[in-house]
Every structure is written in C-alpha cells, then in structure tokens.
Amino acid sequence: MTQEDIRFFRTWFEEYTKRFPSEDPEIEANLWYKKEHSIRVREYMLTLGHDLRLNENQMFLAEVIGLFHDVGRFEQYVRYHTFKDYQSEDHAKLGLSVLEREQVFLGRGSEQEKDLIFTAILNHNQRVVHKKVLGNTLKLCKLIRDADKLDILEQVISFYENPARTPHFAIERNHKDERYSSDIIQGILRGKQISYTSVKTPVDIKLIRLAWLLDLNYPAALDLAKRKQFLPRLFAFIPQTKDTLRVLQYIEKVIDNSQ
C-alpha cells in the first residue's frame, strides 16, 4: 500500500460522507458526529500504532481501518434512524458491502491487505475477535477495538457531562432511572463482555461501557483511558449501590494488576 492509496482513501471517505444530506437536524447531526468519530479513531490508530512501533505499511493499514471501520453507519442511520445493530443490521457487515459496492479497493493495495482490512472491520464490533484471526491481522483487530472504545467512551462521557455541546446525539438521556440488571452485574464480575441485547435499562448500558475498560488490549490504550479518567467520570453517572461499587472495585483491581 502506498501514500497515494492513502490519499485516495481519505478523499473517497470525505466525498462519500457528503452523500447523505438531510433536512432533519437529528439525522444531519448524527451523521456528522459519526464522520468526526471515524476521523478521531483514525488518529487513535496512528497514536497507538506508533506506540507499538508498527512499520510504515502497518501504519497505512491502521489508518485505513480506522477511517473505514464505521463506514456502514451512514447508510444504517439513514435507513433505520438508529445506530443499534440489533434493531437494524450489523454495521460492520453493512460497511463491507459499501466498500465492495463502491469498489474502493479496486487497483488499490494487495488482495491480502484488503482481506486484512475487511477482517479488522468485521471484528471491530464483536464481543470477541474470531479465534481464527492470528498474527498481524489479530494485532490490527485489537488495535481498532481499542481505538474505537477510547473515542466512544470520550464522546459518551462528554455528552453525559454536557448534553448541550452535542445536541441530537443518538444516546440514552435518562439518568433518573436507577434500575439495573443483576445478570449484567454478575457477568462483569465474572470477567465477561456483555452483549447490548442484554440491556434492559439505561444503567445497564453504562455498566457495559464501564466494562469496556477490561477489554482494552494495549497498555497505551489503557494509559490514555486512565489519563482521561474514564472510570470515575463514567461511574459518576451510575447509581452507587453495593452491586455497582463491587463492579467499580473489580475494574479498578483488574486495571491496576494489568499495569
């Protein structure tokens, strides 16, 4: 893959995201948020990749994966008016169909590089990476999962702290409902990553996102999460009970032991 290929991918992405104008301010805002998210995730990929001392070609691949990982989100939101995969369709698979339909990789990069990029995109939103993914592909799969989580956590927490800064942001807004599911509490305490399909209350979603801190693969990603104080900032919006404090203490212990 060459620098010329990277310039082409950047230009294509910029032009593609302009295809979804809407008079609905909510749709317009969320598509813009998703575009900016993709750009920030690309930057996280480069930051984390530099820490891992990836070579030039690996950095090219990391940038493309970061930029394209959510390319399916634009059609998803316009079609279904939601970013919830379980209420619409898997946005990673939809993204791959967009890239194929648009022939984005025609004459760009090798077939092996395309397969690696597609595998990383396909695995970025799964609870776990497929067990058959190995080697350099696995490294980049883990990288996109970390970069994606870092930016989502930052944007979600920032919204909780100041909703007016990102109006129309497609996220739960109810902080008054303090119910939560005991199954999710127990799942986190057993070290499991919980599916969104298990969510029954707004607190459940916050607990799942809190547990993402247990699923960061690289020390640089965890360092960033700690510097940005994601754990205490997010926990501030979770009701403090005996159960949730156990979750907080468990996550703090795992994070401390991983350093």
Rank of each mutant, 00 (worst) to 15 (best):
F105M: 01
V128C: 06
D115S: 11
A164L: 15
N136R: 14
W212P: 01
A170V: 04
L116R: 03
I184V: 04
D215P: 00
Q112E: 15
F118P: 01
K131I: 09
R165C: 09
G109A: 08
S182N: 08
E100R: 14
I121P: 00
V129M: 10
A170K: 04
T197E: 09
I144S: 03
N174Q: 07
H124E: 06
K132G: 04
H130W: 07
L106D: 13
L116D: 05
I144M: 06
G107N: 07
K149D: 00
K139D: 00
V98R: 02
R101G: 12
L153V: 08
P163F: 12
I205G: 02
D183Q: 12
L96R: 08
I188Q: 01
N217F: 10
D151V: 11
V129L: 04
G109N: 07
A164C: 03
E172W: 00
E172S: 10
K149T: 15
Q155C: 01
F159S: 02
S158R: 13
E161Q: 14
Q193F: 09
S195H: 11
D146L: 06
Y218I: 02
N125Q: 10
Q155P: 04
Q103K: 15
N217A: 10
E113K: 10
V129C: 01
D183A: 10
D183C: 03
F105I: 03
L99F: 10
K206Q: 12
Q193I: 07
V104W: 01
I208R: 00
I171A: 06
D183N: 13
L143V: 13
V156W: 10
V203M: 09
D151W: 04
I194P: 00
A164T: 12
N217W: 12
Q155I: 07
I188H: 08
L210F: 03
R179P: 02
D115Y: 14
V128K: 13
R145W: 00
S198G: 00
E100P: 02
L116T: 07
V156R: 01
I117W: 09
G191H: 12
L138D: 07
I194D: 03
Q186S: 12
E154D: 15
